[in-house]
Design a protein around this nucleic acid. Structure first.
Lengths: 161, 161
DNA sequence: AAGTGAAATGTTATACTATATCAAGACGAA
DNA sequence: TTCGTCTTGATATAGTATAACATTTCACTT
C-alpha cells in the first residue's frame, strides 16, 4: 500500500478505524490517550483535512472543552510525536495520519493549491537520494519533511476527465 | 556540483559572488534588485545562516532603513520567488540560495538540531520517487519542500574526529 | 520634458501561530 | 497512603505574517 489516496473511501469506517488503531498503539506502548488528546485526534480524523491549531481550538471551544491554545498544542504534540498525526510545515497545519498502524514512517504530502486537500503517501523505503547525499557529507538525519504543492487530480485542468 | 556544503569556503568571495549573480540574473530577466531587496539579500549572504524575518528586520532597523515587517516580507518574497533565497519551512526562516546561478532547482536542506547550521543540496535531477508517486495518482507538482533535521558532521558524537 | 500606468515602498494596524510559566489535579508504582 | 511523574488549567506573552491604503519611483510613451 504505497498509493496516494485521492479516491473515495468509507469515511465512518476510516474514523473508527483510526481511533481504534490509536488506542491499540497507546495501550501497547503505555501511552495515555486521554480525553482531550482523543478528541483532537477525532476531530482531525473526522474533518479529514489539514487544520490549523486554532481551527481545532474552535471546535473544542464549541463543546465546552477548556479551550486555550496550550490545550490544543499539547494534544497535537502528543499525537504528532507518536505518529497519530502529522504537521504540514508548509501550511502550519495538522492532519491525522493515514496509516497509524504502520509505526514509524517517512510520509510525503501532496498539497493541492486549489482545493486544499492534503494526501499522504509513503516515502520510498529504499535508501533515498536524500539519505545518500546526507550520508556522503557526514550528516545524520533524524527526521525529514517532504511536501509537494500543486494540483490534485480533481483540480488539474482537463483532469478527472 | 551536487555536494552538500559543510566545508569551509572563501566567504568574502561567496558574498560578492552571490550579489553579482543576483544582479546578473535580474538584469537578464528585467527584475529590479532595488536597494532594500539587495540589502536583505546581502544580509542573508553575509550571515550565511537561516534567519527569521524579524532577525533581518533588526539588522535593517539598526541601519535606519524603514523597518516595518512588510519591508522585510516583501523583499523576502521577491528573493524567494526569484530563487535568490529559500524559505526553510521547518524553521520559519530564510537563507540565501547557495547557487543562484543555476536557475530553477529543487533544493534539499539539511538542518542541524545542535548548531542550527543549514546546508543546501540539490534534489536529484532524475525523476524522483516523489514525482513518480505523484504522477501515478494524477497530481501535478509545482513546488516541493524537502528538509531533513539531524546532526551535522561537526555535531555528530564522534564525528569530525 | 511632461504624462501615464505599473511596480515598489511607507506606514499603521491587525491577524495568525506558538510557547513560557506556574499552579493544580490525576494516575500508577512502591 | 505517599511519592513522583505525567497531565491539565489558566494567564500572559512571544513570534510569524499579512491586510489595507497612501505615496513614491521608475520605465516608457508622447
Amino acid at each position: 500500500m504505497s498509493e496516494i489516496g485521492f479516491g473515495k473511501h468509507d469515511h465512518s469506517a476510516c474514523i473508527s478505524g483510526a481511533l481504534e488503531a490509536a488506542e491499540q498503539v497507546c495501550s501497547a506502548q503505555g501511552l495515555r490517550l486521554t480525553k482531550g488528546r482523543r478528541r483532537v485526534l477525532e476531530i482531525l480524523v473526522q474533518e479529514h483535512r489539514a487544520m490549523g491549531a486554532y481551527d481545532i481550538l474552535a471546535v473544542l471551544s464549541d463543546e465546552g472543552f477548556g479551550a486555550q491554545p496550550p490545550v490544543v498544542y499539547r494534544a497535537l504534540e502528543f499525537l504528532v510525536s507518536n505518529g497519530f498525526a502529522h504537521k504540514i510545515e508548509k501550511l502550519n497545519a495538522y492532519v491525522a495520519c493515514s496509516h497509524p498502524q504502520e509505526g514509524d514512517h517517512a510520509p510525503v504530502f501532496l498539497i493541492c493549491k486549489s482545493c486544499g486537500i492534503v494526501a499522504e503517501g509513503d516515502a520510498p523505503k529504499r535508501k533515498s537520494d536524500l539519505q545518500q547525499q546526507a550520508q556522503e557529507s557526514g550528516f545524520v538525519i533524524e527526521t525529514t519533511v517532504m511536501e509537494a504543492e500543486g494540483l490534485c487530480p480533481t483540480c488539474v485542468p482537463g483532469g478527472e476527465a
